[in-house]
Design a protein around this nucleic acid. Sequence first.
DNA 1: CAAGACCCCAAGCACCGCTTATGGCAGGCT
DNA 2: AGCCTGCCATAAGCGGTGCTTGGGGTCTTG
Lengths: 306, 306
Amino acid sequence: MALDVRRLLILRAVLRAGSLTAAARELGWTQPAVSQHLRHLEREAGVPLLLRGPAGVSPTEAGFVLLARADAVAAELHAAEEEVSALAGLRAGRVRLQAFPSAAATLVPAAVGALAEAHPGIAVGLEEAEPDTALPAVLAGDADLALAFGYDGPPSDLSGLAWRPLLVEPVLLVLPPGTSAPPGLAALREEPWIGGCVRCRGHLVDACRTAGFDPHLRHTTDDYVVVQNLVARGLGVTALPASALAAHRHPDVVAVPLAELGLRHVGLALRPGAEAVPATAALVAELERVARHTAPAHTLTSEAAD
Amino acid sequence: MALDVRRLLILRAVLRAGSLTAAARELGWTQPAVSQHLRHLEREAGVPLLLRGPAGVSPTEAGFVLLARADAVAAELHAAEEEVSALAGLRAGRVRLQAFPSAAATLVPAAVGALAEAHPGIAVGLEEAEPDTALPAVLAGDADLALAFGYDGPPSDLSGLAWRPLLVEPVLLVLPPGTSAPPGLAALREEPWIGGCVRCRGHLVDACRTAGFDPHLRHTTDDYVVVQNLVARGLGVTALPASALAAHRHPDVVAVPLAELGLRHVGLALRPGAEAVPATAALVAELERVARHTAPAHTLTSEAAD
DNA sequence: CAAGACCCCAAGCACCGCTTATGGCAGGCT
DNA sequence: AGCCTGCCATAAGCGGTGCTTGGGGTCTTG
């Protein structure tokens, strides 16, 4: 009593063609092949579906009922092919991207803009999120792509995710106006420090400890505009990655590269296999292109020249 | 790019189960079987449909789209099975019956009534029609069943139709009140005759010619009530099959059997194969049952005893 | 009356599609 | 840490589905 869907579609072909022979021609088969399928289908149905006449076949009531259902199935199938074809051809698709603030301000608009121009059907949804929330979101399937970072290497909590590095950028010391570049981090041991996001703060403390002191964290904000305003007023010193300064640069603060602050590795995290999804792949490619073009400016620009 | 419907349903099972292994269990297969089907489906689609994780799979956008389509297909399939099952179980169905007047007045109501009681879901549509129109209607598919007749044998124009005999009935001479049974047809050569339907008229003329004369056909009507009223007024004589008299019997006319008038063969015409359609078969069986019970009354009743 | 259309049936064979067997990978338990 | 147990993929083998060819029957058509 379980009907075979394929045979339902064969029945449809037969009824549309008007005879088994004609249907077989359309399907590229021989007539007995169609005949056997219909016999099976009739056995499954338990009811005759066709009346065989000398000039072709005509549906019984059951055949007519199944024809209507088969038409609906064929329509669904056709629609499915259309939709998948649109997804494969980048005429449709949706990518949910989570990115940390400074990347959301620099890389993302350029990449998403270029993608929107090349493929208007692709809808990119951006959500600003630090790696600590973005990576689990991708893992849980709540996002397709996370623009994340790690210090001195990829993020450590990439369990089950693939990592595609985009760029490596220096971390710069950010000092109040008029300050001259210190010889090293240890020279700033008595200064009040401004901490950024969780991950950045942790890295800053690590770097200071390596330099031999625990920094006095007087202020904490993950907003790179706020940070620079505080520094500009002389209320503290801090460290910022190059891209944060590229996103916004307070004209008065002094930014100098310092090897002790290490490097920030920016990249994309996605679930294994997701790179083969066309829309995702297109956005990844666009982000990689943008990163290639902007990375040299970040990594090579000597901010000390300011 | 042509998607296989069955694989669509397999994808559905996988996404509902959450993993290939679980889906395989549900389908009664092994895991690699499901894995291969999905690989084929993804190749057909040209797009990844699933992201494989360590704890099962989750759909990509394309997979999600196909899932929705597969759900619709499954729903259609299920509905198709329901409908066919109802047809097979006589819980639904429609039979278009064409019957000649006297059968429509006797056999049909009894049979259709019994069928309606036994299977309320079966809808019988009756159309009154002489064999000359009923048989072509069945052949053309405009009717499922024709209650028809032939004189001295089944109808001659059964090209391509199957014939199921129901009963054989005598044709009776119908005479005005007070008339006594004539020795033979030839004794009525000078009487004014009343002709019935085309086929009946033809048979009457044939019988008279065999008896050696051409009958004077003064009146013509296929309505057996009208015929008897004319006879009752002494306006002519005629011949009527037993079932016409069973349907309506004018109290005054005299009806006597006469071998020269031959026998009328009543039966069912249907397209070959149609007897296997449950609803049709049920009506056929009911008609045969009714005919078996009423036929002896017709054939054996001596109307001359009136 | 033969030719051509339609159908069914039977037998053969190829390939699809399932199975078994094996390996890799990630997470969770002891 | 190391094993164990999920998960999935791959490869090889084999059975059965499902196609083909070949032949026969019936009804319409020229």
